[in-house]
């Protein structure tokens, strides 16, 4: 580090030791950042951090964390899914417009069908026709927004309403600070975490992102892996949309659209490389929590909307850049 002597491994100041320690425990700095933000929030607005506040923060973070799962998994293969936000909006809207006729459960399932179709189309485009994921999913998100507009116009008479079962799931906390949506999120998150670490399919996501040529030579049918991946991503996005409709208690055709950048940011802050092969879901969950607290923080500061946007973007950039330096330092 100082360049005074020959470079031997154990040399270097405490800073280097700390960096090595952090590199092997990438969640630690994220959790520290989260705790720091919460502490700062309490300082700025004493009394804000309460049981209710924790519950509400988690309620908002859960749909974001599900969308971040889509980004984490696609980014692990070197891709990205920029259609998740509009797909989530679409599912929420389809559910809210059909539930009066067929009931909340059937409406929710029906709402996941177009989400799965969009995911499948993304997967076929990326996996089989080798369209770049950025182009493919952005194009599909335009198609989806247009389709939702057409659907909304044909549905003027129906009106939208989010059924109470969904609002109970997304927006209520029966056990104090534990929101009900944890009932679905904990098993889902556990499934994703285990699948990425311990399943053959999870390994293939890392393999494809690390070296597609080598994966192919080892017999991996990369196209199939990607088709399934984007299908899963679409379904998860649709599911996140339903939960978020429950959080808000109403649904429009653009409900979840603003979550696009945060979903990517949560995964990036969480340590997943957009170049593929590196990262994991645990970091993305903490990333989603950090972003949600950050939004509260900016709201509490009572800054004008424009200033909040500027700060939000700048802070995401700073965190992502710093964190990448810490965890990938050589």
């Amino acid at each position: 580090m100082t360049g005074s002597a020959t470079a031997v491994e154990p040399r270097g100041g405490p800073l280097v030791v700390a960096r090595v320690w952090l590199r092997d425990r990438p969640l630690v700095p994220l959790l520290l950042l989260l705790a720091g933000l919460v502490a700062l929030l309490e300082v700025v607005q004493p009394g804000i951090v309460s049981v209710n506040w924790v519950a509400s923060t988690m309620r908002f973070a859960i749909p974001l964390a599900i969308l971040a799962a889509c980004q984490t998994m696609t980014m692990l293969t070197g891709g990205i899914d920029l259609s998740v936000a509009v797909v989530a909006s679409m599912s929420a809207y389809v559910m809210a417009t059909t539930q009066s006729d067929i009931g909340w459960l059937a409406a929710s399932l029906v709402a996941l069908v177009p989400a799965g179709v969009v995911g499948l189309v993304n997967g076929i485009g990326v996996g089989l026709f080798r369209v770049h994921p950025l182009i493919m999913t952005i194009s599909m998100s335009l198609v989806v927004s247009g389709a939702v507009n057409v659907y909304a116009r044909s549905n003027i008479t129906g009106g939208t309403r989010v059924p109470s079962e969904i609002t109970d799931l997304g927006g209520q906390s029966l056990l104090g600070f534990l929101p009900n949506s944890l009932i679905v999120f904990i098993p889902l998150a556990a499934l994703i975490l285990v699948a990425l670490r311990r399943s053959g399919y999870g390994r293939l996501l890392y393999a494809v992102g690390d070296n597609e040529v080598a994966s192919r030579l080892a017999g991996v049918r990369v196209g199939r892996v990607l088709v399934v991946l984007y299908l899963i991503s679409g379904l998860l996005a649709g599911f996140a949309g339903l939960i978020y409709a429950g959080v808000i208690g109403s649904a429009t055709g653009r409900l979840v659209d603003p979550f696009l950048l945060p979903s990517v940011a949560a995964a990036v802050i969480g340590g997943t490389s957009i170049f593929g092969g590196r990262g994991g879901y645990a970091g993305s969950i903490v990333g989603a929590l950090i972003l949600t607290v950050l939004v509260t923080f900016l709201n509490v500061m009572q800054a004008p909307e424009a200033v909040r946007q500027i700060l939000f973007g700048a802070i995401i950039l700073a965190v992502a850049a710093t964190y990448t330096r810490i965890t990938e330092g050589s």
């Binding site: 390994r203 890392y206 690390d210 070296n211 994966s215």
Partner: peptide, 25 residues
């Protein structure tokens, strides 16, 4: 090779390629 992955995953890779091995390892 998957240069950023451990030896174990590199050695195990071909075995996981088949669809029926997509499940738990």
């Amino acid at each position: 090779l998957l240069m950023q992955r451990p030896v174990r995953e590199n050695v195990a890779l071909p075995r996981l390629a088949a669809f029926r091995r997509w499940g738990l390892i």
